[in-house]
Design a binder for these strands. Structure first.
Lengths: 195, 195
DNA sequence: AATCGACTATTCGGTTCCGAATACTATAGC
DNA sequence: GCTATAGTATTCGGAACCGAATAGTCGATT
């Protein structure tokens, strides 16, 4: 198990999670993930998926469970989880939850670090717009959650990651709005040239 | 300006931000970022830095401001921001703040989505440990923040990204602890096999 | 003055990432 | 039965990423 491998990315976890249910071919994994809305949680591109599958294969976490043309669709390969894969899944999952990553949400923090460069009014404006977009996103997630839980009677646990996302979006929105307000009111002084 | 370029990663923003102050060579950027503690906000490896600089050069956002050996140190190249670079910096910064990325914090959400697979007690345990680690991290950030603000009289605005990080860590910790408690108490039912 | 370790500065090579391209199948409309 | 269009399934090539390797310099020690 190399230090850094494609088999360690979030997508790899998702792939193993799917194979826990039943053997699948990559394309089916992709559509299933999309169906369940997990594709927006992390990046999901076709190329990466096939690379990830290859890496999992290399590490013996999954195995070829039959290549061939089923019906007369284009040829495809079905993969199944191995026993070591099953253990690896649980271990990785446990570790991901147990220890927070150092560089979680790096895009926004890197920008925030330089927000002073925009000037107080521009910065406050941008933050306010972000707050609006966050609210929209939350709204979308919330309605998706409600309908999933309502109509299909899906247990809450299976949408728990949406609850997490909603909680974090709300927290970010609070901070963004509070900071915009501080910038506008002058409570957060905006010194000329420093650093 | 290609669709996806190394010149669009968080590091590129940081590089431009530094060159806003004065021309620098890559190694100096690296040590400056480390000094300021920005290296933990996003990944920072030597290879990536030089690649990023090359990409910025290619896009004319920075220019070679003198190659050569200063004193008799190993040869090095100093880079300076161009005018288009200056604009690009502001625009990118504005955009990063204005529109939230779809895949912010993907590592943890992808894990949370499968937390049911751990079983209630194991999941609660892992979450609790995460909470502890988050608290430690917050403590480290807080003390770094206090000392920076205290001793050097640095304006708050220049450590604002740490305040953001602290806010988000606190929010995550809340959710993690609440969820662990729900799992333990049975308030979050843990059905057998589904999905 | 030769050796060592710490610091300065960059290149290298392999893996990962990812959108575009490919190619094949099925259904519909004419 | 021919073409168009939508859906299925995977490969490809090139860019980005990143740790390890390289290589030169400085000061201290023997």
């Amino acid at each position: 198990m190399p230090a850094r491998s494609a088999a360690d990315n979030p997508l790899a976890l998702a792939v193993m999670g799917l194979l826990l249910e039943k053997p699948m071919h990559p394309y089916e994994m992709m559509s299933t993930l999309r169906e369940r809305g997990l594709d927006s949680a992390f990046k999901l591109s076709t190329g990466t998926l096939y690379d990830t599958v290859r890496a999992l294969l290399r590490d013996d976490r999954i195995r070829d469970a039959g290549t061939g043309s089923d019906g007369n669709r284009p040829q495809r390969t079905v993969y199944a989880l191995t026993d070591t894969g099953r253990t690896a899944f649980t271990e990785r999952l446990d570790a991901l939850i147990r220890v927070p990553a150092d560089d979680e949400y790096p895009k926004f923090v890197s920008a925030v670090a330089y927000i002073g460069a925009l000037g107080a009014e521009a910065a406050a404006g941008a933050l306010t717009e972000r707050a609006d977009r966050l609210a929209e996103r939350a709204e979308r997630l919330r309605s998706g959650l409600d309908s999933a839980l309502g109509e299909s009677g899906l247990p809450r646990l299976f949408m728990i990651e949406v609850e997490y996302a909603l909680h974090m979006i709300a927290a970010e929105r609070e901070w963004v709005l509070a900071t915009a307000e501080e910038l506008r009111s002058g409570a957060l002084p905006h010194p000329e040239e420093h650093r």
